[in-house]
Design a protein around this nucleic acid. Structure first.
Lengths: 246, 246
DNA sequence: CTAAATTGTGTAAAATTTACACATTACGAA
DNA sequence: TTCGTAATGTGTAAATTTTACACAATTTAG
């Protein structure tokens, strides 16, 4: 109560051994990563889910996740899941949020770190041999196992916001894409309609699209030009966001 | 390799007991929370640091943190630190990022969840009896213990961005404040100069400020009007952010 | 009473965003 | 081969938002 500064000071100092024993004691919890993997197909935003591996949640879908091993980096654990499930290596992935409510998991205390990933569905379609995996349209995702619905929704919100300030969306497309496809991606993610001319104007003005001199193939109408995204130029010029607006 | 769907399916099903044993096995790590507590004083953005409690880092400052107990929610753990160190209860706090590199902490595997908090320094100044705690100007924060420098920088970046889309800044001020003080907060956080008339115009246009009919006291010049922020109105009208811009 | 400091206010120019229409190209069917 | 269909590609005018900028009013201190 009436502790002096000196006493407080003393109280807050710990030897390395004390800390170490605290770290290695029962003060530990299971840690998992859960991946919300988005894809884009048939002009719909989709998310990759797996049938829950717990009997109790047998009829529910869940996110792809796994426990983090004691000698595994968090990011590595997330990448590992992605590699394991989709066969994909160099994919876009970002940590979104950590969910740590005491009773969030029925098997005991499990804190989970949610990651968001955006991949090109075409690239790995063949890898999904496992019929327990399925691409769901985001609008129809309900009743996920555990607290995965909440996690999914947080990640979807995150995506909707993030895609507006960072060119994430391109990860859902092949490296060559038409402006219409790009617009479809944005419309699907944000669930809005955009004006075609203004959309094109905006992207051309940003000056990150490179006309590669090719055109769409096998479309039943005038083919659109194909572009690629110049990430280097983007990195150099990217906006230092500034403006109060809420 | 040539596993059938059926086989994959089987492989991915686990009984509750198996899961439970995985959760309770050695697959566990220590988990901590670290709080980056911002304050605003003398027109400077400051952060609350403590002398490292580890001998090895004796001459370094570090963030306020603690291990999360097995039966403690993450958010609760973070609030607890804040309560313990500042005596403050209802403060603004948000989770920012989780840092989980294997070797980030010298005492063993400790994954840490970083939280950002914004408080009014005046409100609790008296609580800092502990002379191991100190408010540092953000610009002069260097060489924090462990990976705390990295965590601090991530949180500072987060703040600079977040403050532009959400009225966080107000948490640094008393409930009654002048527009000049508000502008000072924004200038300090963003480290830029703003045009006074445009700043006022912008905030008045947002229509969240309520003139409470009082004025500044004891200023050696014409006193400014005092306002409060109407959070309810904000919640109702807040912007659903929409616009591609990067 | 005067000087110093800071508040409070409006407008014109510039930049950005929005709304909107028509000619062009390729395919497929008759 | 021609025509209908479906989508691409393009510019401009109006509206809105953002920026730059100056002077009178109020209070305190001396």
């Amino acid at each position: 109560m009436a502790a002096t500064s000196k006493e407080n000071h003393t109280k807050s100092i710990k030897t390395f051994k004390v800390i170490q024993s605290e770290v290695n004691s029962i003060n530990r919890v299971a840690l998992s990563v859960d991946c919300v993997i988005f894809g884009f197909d048939e002009n719909k935003l989709k998310v990759l889910l797996i049938r829950s591996d717990l009997k109790k949640y047998q009829c529910n879908w869940s996110l792809l996740g796994d426990l983090v091993k004691p000698h595994e980096d968090l990011d590595s654990a997330a990448y590992h899941i992605l590699k394991q499930r989709t066969g994909l290596n160099d994919v876009f992935m970002e940590q979104v949020h950590t969910f740590g409510e005491v009773n969030r998991h029925p098997a005991g205390r499990v804190v989970t770190v949610a990651y968001c990933s955006l991949i090109n569905i075409q690239h790995h379609r063949i890898k999904i041999l496992d019929n327990e995996l399925h691409w769901h349209e985001v609008d129809s995702v309900t009743d996920l196992a555990f607290d995965h619905q909440k996690i999914f929704e947080a990640c979807y919100c995150w995506l909707q916001k993030r895609v507006q300030e960072h060119p994430l969306g391109l990860n859902l497309l092949p490296s060559k894409f038409s402006l219409r496809e790009l617009q479809n991606v944005y419309e699907a993610i944000l669930n809005i309609k955009l004006d075609r001319r203004n959309f094109r104007k905006k992207f051309f003005a940003m000056d990150f699209l490179v006309d590669i001199g090719e055109e769409e193939q096998n479309v039943p109408h005038r083919p659109g030009k194909l572009y690629k995204f110049d990430y280097e130029k983007y990195e150099k010029k990217k906006k230092t966001w500034s403006g109060i607006d809420f």
